[in-house]
């Protein structure tokens, strides 16, 4: 066994090397292998198969395994695909900017202005939305934002509106925020709370103004965590189909909606696979760029 058990204390190792426990790799592999087999069969294999599927052909409504470029050429040459791509990328970028900006003052307050126990409670509250149905929350927004909905009813009391909020980009962004805001606040709060307080106090004592402290001290120190939060926000917004469909009106469709339309009406799984592969490549590029800039040394 080349692997040294570094976490086990030495007195245990003495016994394992001489005793009956030593030659029992069954235990070790019984712990280690199940997840490898499971994720290999049901996570990696499906993804690889999907990439392969983008080269299959559909004949007489049946998918046949093959290796042709037809699906790729077809999708790449269509304007609606690129419109959809630009829209999805733009919306996800906008969502990331909006959510990161909206979340920051909240995370700042939770990280620096409240007690530890209040922060723990706030984070617990922020976890709750993850376990409530996202669909139901979006349906709720649909009713709240509608032309005769709650917000417009309230606005009409002070003589405003009605405003059209459904089937607009505004609606889509509200939906994306519903999905990503709690997670982004949690990640931002943790990365801000981990900053060494004495550095902030030092800046303050040296006469640095609060805004400048945020810009010159806090943001650079929390950079890694903040970029990770932004990457998660982008990934979630980019891959979500519920908000652009129900709140954004889906005209034109975003890439996830394109996948659903292609699969549910017409059995064109290979073409849907092309869209999915393009999405994966985009997300890998964004995540990689994000991580590279998060760990890049300052000043280089």
């Amino acid at each position: 066994m080349p692997s040294a058990d570094r976490s086990a204390p030495s007195l245990a190792k003495d016994q394992t090397s001489g005793g009956r426990v030593a030659h029992w790799p069954v235990f070790k592999y019984a712990m280690r292998l199940p997840i490898v087999i499971w994720q290999g069969l049901f996570f990696i294999a499906p993804l690889i198969f999907m990439v392969a599927m983008s080269f299959f052909v559909v004949r007489n409504y049946r998918m046949t395994e093959d290796f042709v470029m037809k699906n790729w050429l077809k999708m790449m040459s269509r304007d609606y695909f690129w419109d959809s791509y630009a829209l999805t990328f733009g919306l996800a970028t906008l969502s990331t900017i909006v959510v990161m900006t909206v979340a920051f003052p909240a995370a700042y307050t939770l990280a620096f202005r409240v007690s530890d126990s209040t922060r723990r409670w706030a984070v617990f509250l922020l976890i709750i939305p993850f376990f409530t149905s996202y669909l139901v929350r979006i349906f709720s927004w649909y009713v709240i934002l509608a032309e005769s909905g709650v917000i417009n009813a309230m606005l009409s009391y002070i003589g405003l509106g009605p405003y059209v909020m459904l089937n607009t980009k505004f609606g889509t962004i509200v939906g994306y925020m519903t999905l990503t805001l709690p997670l982004v606040i949690i990640l931002q709060t943790f990365s801000l709370a981990n900053i060494d307080r004495s550095l902030i106090e030092a800046a303050h004592n040296l006469g640095c103004k609060p805004w400048r402290t945020i810009y010159r001290v806090i943001l650079p120190l929390a950079r890694t965590g903040l970029i990770i939060a932004a990457v998660f926000c982008f990934i979630l917004s980019f891959g979500d189909f519920v908000s652009p469909y129900y709140l954004g009106g889906s005209k034109p469709p975003t890439l996830p909606i394109l996948i659903i339309d292609t699969v549910k009406s017409g059995q064109q799984w290979p073409r849907a696979a092309v869209v999915a592969v393009v999405m994966m490549v985009t997300l890998f590029a964004v995540a990689f760029a994000g991580i590279a800039s998060a760990y890049r040394r300052r000043g280089s």
Binding site: I35, Q39, F43, A45, L47, G239, V263, A273
Partner: peptide, 26 residues
């Protein structure tokens, strides 16, 4: 090993859905 296990939540659900649909059919 750890990447293999921790990666699934970062893949958009709609992509996992398509991949699983095709793989389970296969």
């Amino acid at each position: 090993y750890l990447a293999l296990i921790l990666l699934p939540p970062t893949i958009p659900l709609i992509i996992m859905a398509l991949a699983m649909l095709a793989w389970f059919a296969k």
